[in-house]
């Protein structure tokens, strides 16, 4: 069971956590999969993914898979 962090611990974690921002669009889904296939799941970094929406394409459902 995951340990509940105190507010101070959470704040400390925020101070040290590296954040990876990834910009992606429908044309780069293969690359996106490739990047995440190689990433160490225990690296300790947080990942934010922003999807550049293109008319007529639904990228987000693909990401959910």
């Amino acid at each position: 069971m995951q340990k509940q962090l105190t507010p101070t611990e959470a704040a400390d974690e925020q101070e040290t956590i590296a954040v990876v921002g990834i910009g992606v669009c429908a044309l780069s889904l293969r690359s996106f999969e490739q990047v995440f296939a190689d990433i160490d799941p225990e690296l300790g970094t947080a990942y934010l993914v922003a999807v550049r929406q293109q008319e007529g394409l639904m990228s987000a459902p693909s990401l959910r898979c």
């Binding site: 040290t16 956590i17 590296a18 954040v19 990876v20 921002g21 990834i22 910009g23 992606v24 669009c25 429908a26 044309l27 780069s28 690359s31 996106f32 990047v35 970094t45 934010l48 922003a50 999807v51 550049r52 929406q53």
Partner: peptide, 28 residues
């Protein structure tokens, strides 16, 4: 005209400073 990627990366840079890693995949 949303600047979705830029908005996210700028906020990450402002928050995480040298702990920020920006990854731009092709086609953007």
């Amino acid at each position: 005209q949303r600047g979705t990627i830029d908005s996210m990366l700028i906020s990450i840079a402002e928050h995480a400073h040298d702990r920020a890693i920006a990854v731009i995949l092709s086609g953007l």
